[in-house]
Each structure stands twice: as structure tokens, then as C-alpha cells.
Design a binder for these strands. Structure first.
Lengths: 127, 127
DNA sequence: CTGGATCCATACGGATACTG
DNA sequence: CAGTATCCGTATGGATCCAG
């Protein structure tokens, strides 16, 4: 997709799909499902996320009204992120998705390996 | 994410999330949910997808065992794509997601506008 | 601690042209 | 019809440095 804004925004699904598009959003929301969490705590538990992407992701989620941001007025500044009420329904479905992923991941892996093997095994495939 | 393969593949969720990551996969699967479909038919109905991306997307889905590909031996070659049994559960959940997106899209839009307005409205924001 | 700003590599994705 | 191959602009995302 080009500039992502010049495109067909008549399709409502796209809005949410775009948010789900970057894996981090999903991971963050699933994590926040367990309860409110602070920036670096998220950073540690998400595993693999750079500080920049976590920041960007959280801002996007906040913009879409899916995550709330609460600044605790403390000596070392603390910021707590939490799901908004609106996000709850979405997160439930995301959890359903994750469950499917968990249980079917081995099958997907198998299929993938079979596919790859079939390719490299084919006699006429030169590459 | 870097090379997408050098990354943490210990996390099972990632595998499926990556597939869901590109919006096209979801759109294609939701379309195939209605029944088997041919290449150009998909191309027409998906709207916005380039021929290349549809091709790439379908190959990925096939590789993961989520979509089957059947070549009809006809004069003008025809290829029919369909969901595999394994994909059915996934697609159901994706449909759930799409439903949420449909019903909540206005709210997301609102939140987004409010967020943007708050930014440009803030006095101290120079940018 | 919680980020924003910048720099830079690369992978994604569109357009186009070409095959079976 | 159903793709594959190439070219090439652009957005994504990591690394690093800096600020409140």
C-alpha cells in the first residue's frame, strides 16, 4: 500500500486492519489485557520491541482510543498504559486469534516445511 | 522487524501474526470464506490489491497450508483457490474481528479526530 | 524513567513488461 | 487467464543521541 492515506478509506475494515497490521499493536494490547502496565515494563515483557516502536505503537493505539495513557506525577516520571473500555471487545477477539495461533502453529509449521521441501525436491526446478 | 527471520521465532504467536500482518491475507481469506474463487475474480473483488501482491499473498497462504490451489486443465488456464479445513477456525475468528471493526470504526474515527484536534489545539505545541 | 529526533539500511509494494 | 521478473520509490524499523 502506498502512503497509506491516499488509499481507499471507504473500506471500514482497513482502519482496524491497519492497526492490527503491525504485530506490535496486537502484542501490546494482549499484554495490557492482563492489566495496566508501564512503559519499560511493557518493553521488557514484549521482547524484541525496540523502544522506538513501542513508543510509536502506543501513540497510535492512544490516538485510536484503544489505549489510555496516565502520567503519574512522581519524581522519576511514571506513565501507565491501559486498555480503554472500547478496546475490550477487540482484545477478546485478538485473544481468540492468539489461541488459534498457539494451537495451530505446529500445523502451520508442518505445512510450511512440506511446501518448501516440495519445491527444492522437484526435479525440474532449477533454482 | 528486521529480516523477519532473524527474529525471535520462539514466540508462536508471531508466526500467525506475521501472516495476519499484511492486510491482504486477511482480506483474501475473508473473501475465500464465501467460497472458492479464481485469481482474477479475487483481484477484482479485493479492490486495491495489485496483481503482484495478490500473487505473493496467495503463495504465502498456500505455503502455510491455509489456502489450497487447484489448477483446472482448461484451454484458458483456470486456477481456483479455496480455504483449507485447517483455515476455517482461523477465518471464523477473523470474521469476528471484521465485525468488531465494522461496528466500532466510527468510534475509532472519532477518537482519532479528537486526538488530532487536541494536538493542533494545544497552545504550547509549536510544531 | 519515558520518551522525542535523527540517521540510515532494507524490505514492502506499485508499475511495467514478459511468459505459458 | 494466471502468473513471474525487474525496476525503483517509499515507508518501516533499528541504533543512537538527547531531553524532560
Amino acid at each position: 500500500m502506498p502512503p497509506r492515506d491516499s488509499v481507499n478509506h471507504a473500506c471500514p475494515v482497513r482502519d482496524v486492519l491497519d492497526r492490527i497490521g503491525d504485530a506490535w499493536s496486537v502484542l501490546v494490547m494482549l499484554e495490557l489485557r492482563k492489566g495496566p502496565c508501564r512503559f519499560n515494563a511493557l518493553r521488557r515483557v514484549i521482547d524484541g520491541v525496540s523502544q522506538r516502536m513501542l513508543s510509536v505503537t502506543l501513540r497510535h493505539l492512544e490516538r485510536d482510543g484503544l489505549v489510555s495513557r496516565r502520567v503519574l506525577p512522581l519524581a522519576p516520571p511514571q506513565v501507565e498504559y491501559a486498555l480503554t473500555p472500547m478496546a475490550l471487545g477487540l482484545v477478546e477477539r485478538l485473544a481468540q486469534l492468539r489461541d488459534w495461533a498457539d494451537t495451530h502453529q505446529p500445523l502451520v509449521r508442518q505445512a510450511r516445511d512440506r511446501y518448501d521441501a516440495a519445491l527444492s525436491g522437484s526435479p525440474e526446478i532449477t533454482r
